[in-house]
Amino acid sequence: MSLTPPIIAPQAAPPAAGPATEVVLAVEHVSKSFGENHVLQDFSLALHKGENVVVLGKSGSGKSVLVKCIIGLLPPDAGTITVLGLDVATLDHEAMDRLRARVGFLFQSNALYDSMTVRENLLFPLRRHWLDHPPTQEDELVTQALEDVGLGHTAAMMPAELSGGMRKRIALARTLILRPDIILYDEPTTGLDPVTAREIDHLIREVQQKYGTTALIISHDMNCVRLTADRVALLVDGRCYAVGTYAELQSRDDPRVHEFFA
């Protein structure tokens, strides 16, 4: 039993509405528990169009659960999640699929289909989500997506033939091929060597600048946070403990914030 009461920081206030700060993703008072393990407790966060927000937290703090709730893979126990103006909890299967076509998800383990070539991996979401796209456009879209991640020569290769960094890039290309409005990155640099991790960080920035995508990045890699974040949200004890730019949070005296930046 803790002798000191937990420090509860003020929740991030929703920004003022307006064209310049259009909120494209809002997580409001979301809670999620697995049995007695309360992973998210009254978590709130808002993402504005075109910004990169990193959710920073310790391993096992519920970061991946948060993105899985956002994309509809896990239902939250309480609270609302609004993505591109749609309340995720109220969507039926078809509406959820339409929303998912506009929200890319880069999985922590890349989740490339082992039995398919790189090209087939890229075509899979394209053929499923864009049912009316002309087949003649496929080659062009695959080539463009692969060139965006600098791996134009890998179309015929199998995922097993690729290095860890290449697999991450291909997973990103598979996300980019649908030209999503929002991309959710789940630990994009975990398990990569420092050089490759920095390449992925720069790629995340390039995607943001080239396509104007909004990104929610889950990470505990401080270099990734520093290089990719416009704002950082600190996930502590299931709550959004603090929100600010990297520099703002770094300069805070709060010990629970400081321990991440030390």
């Binding site: 893979l73 076509a101 998800f105 989740a111 289909y113 899979f124 979401p125 989500h129």
Partner: peptide, 16 residues
């Protein structure tokens, strides 16, 4: 193996 490497989740996210 598809379950533990999140390929099944990826399929769901891909509209399948």
């Amino acid at each position: 193996s598809m379950r533990v490497t999140e390929q099944i989740d990826a399929m769901e996210v891909s509209g399948t």
